[in-house]
């Protein structure tokens, strides 16, 4: 079971996205206060979704990754299914909303 989000470089991102059926990537930056709030929300729900892989990309270190996925606001969560982006959440959302969005994807797979 994944216990913590994997910190990814732009080189590792593509392989990570293709490494599981459903993958969630958190695009963040250290200076972004809401990013730290969202990070904790994600940490708390990771144990509920054994079939999903969670990773995060520091866009300050890896701006190319943010550019590649058209990330213009932080935090941005992109949910990938079979390597393709299928959902995007910008900003902090309540835990229940995130759980519901992920559950619907898991149920449909």
């Amino acid at each position: 079971m994944q216990a913590e989000m994997e910190c990814l470089s732009d080189d590792e991102l593509e392989e990570f996205i293709r490494g599981s059926e459903i993958v969630v990537i958190d695009f963040w930056a250290p200076w972004c206060a809401p990013c730290h709030v969202l990070h904790r929300i994600i940490q708390r729900i990771i144990p509920m979704f054994n079939c999903i892989k969670f990773g995060r990309v520091d866009t300050q270190k890896y701006p190319e990754a943010a550019e590649q996925y058209s990330v213009y606001g932080l935090p941005t969560l992109i949910i990938f299914k079979h390597g393709e982006p299928v959902d995007r959440i910008v900003g902090v959302v309540p835990r229940e909303v995130l759980i519901s969005r992920l559950k619907s994807l898991v149920d449909a797979s």
Binding site: P30, W31, C32, A33, P34, H36, V37, L38, H39, R40, I41, Q43, R44, R95
Partner: peptide, 23 residues
């Protein structure tokens, strides 16, 4: 800020959404 997610402090959350913020 992780505690903002875990504990949802009402007043601090209001400030976070109303004033300049940082880390």
């Amino acid at each position: 800020y992780g505690s903002f997610a875990d504990c949802e402090p009402k007043f601090l959350n209001m400030l976070l959404n109303s004033y300049p913020r940082g880390v």
